[in-house]
């Protein structure tokens, strides 16, 4: 908790909060705070950067736009929504945080998030690690062949790529094919053992979407659309995302 009192310099118009309220469903209830503190008492981000959810919301309400827009706390709240779950007024503080993130200039946003968002848009795989279609295909086929030979009970196991009309289109986090490919195998074994009709797609296979985290709405939508198109183009019924 803060040790210093917030010094409030006269009455200000809360421009930022009003703008956010126009975007959030039902205004995100941002004016309904009873200041009870249930949000802050149950938030692991309380105390980080001398901030907590209630303080963040109250500062927005008091028109301290500059202070909340400059606080790194917007990147320390994980938008987990536990505060909304606890709040008697169901105030959407994560929605406020999301829009604060969105207001950060792109070149000031955390490089790890921003960079991953940009890399993922350069390739139809949507991989934040920039892994192209042929690399993913090579790793999947190579690992599958290795296991079919080493573990004969799984000689008939498949890890299909672009199988048209499969029931399930499965996404895969880039980390497995790129850095620990053996970790893909247990999931394949489970799917094989239950007789699931599934497929990867060489397009849109990567599960992650960092544009969500830097509140890049256009990038976020682009990535979702590329992936959804990959699912539709193969005529799959369900899209499974393991993230």
């Amino acid at each position: 908790m803060s040790s210093e009192t917030i010094k409030f310099k006269g009455l200000k118009q809360s421009i930022f909060k009003d703008k956010v309220m126009e975007i959030l469903p039902d205004g995100g209830n941002l004016n309904l705070c009873l200041t009870c503190g249930a949000c802050s008492s149950g938030c692991p981000a309380t105390g980080l950067a001398d901030m907590d959810p209630r303080k963040f919301l109250r500062m927005a309400s008091l028109g301290m736009d500059e202070e909340i827009l400059n606080s790194e706390w917007a990147w320390m709240c994980t938008m987990c929504t536990r505060c909304v779950y606890l709040c008697p007024m169901k105030i959407d503080i994560p929605g406020l945080v999301f829009n604060v993130r969105r207001s950060w200039p792109k070149d000031k946003q955390p490089k790890g998030i921003r960079g991953s968002c940009e890399v993922a848009q350069k390739n139809d795989t949507c991989s934040a690690m920039g892994t192209p279609e042929e690399d993913f295909q090579f790793v999947v086929e190579d690992v599958l062949e290795e296991y079919q030979e080493a573990q004969p009970e799984f000689r008939k196991m498949q890890a299909p790529l672009n199988k048209e009309g499969a029931m399930y289109f499965l996404n895969q986090n880039s980390r497995e094919p790129v850095t620990e490919p053996d970790e893909m195998v247990p999931l394949w074994k489970i799917l094989h053992s239950v007789g699931a009709d599934w497929t990867y797609g060489t397009k849109g296979w990567a599960a992650e979407n960092y544009c969500l985290f830097c509140a890049d709405l256009e990038g976020w939508e682009h990535i979702v659309r590329v992936k959804a198109k990959a699912v539709d183009d193969l005529g799959c019924k369900y899209w499974l995302n393991t993230e």
Binding site: P44, E72, T78, C80, R82, P110, Y210, F213
Partner: peptide, 20 residues
Amino acid sequence: SNNYCCGGGGGFLQSGLPDA
């Protein structure tokens, strides 16, 4: 539904703020 977030969500793992 009442569980705490682990702290890896929302891009925190890639935010360059490991201490926080």
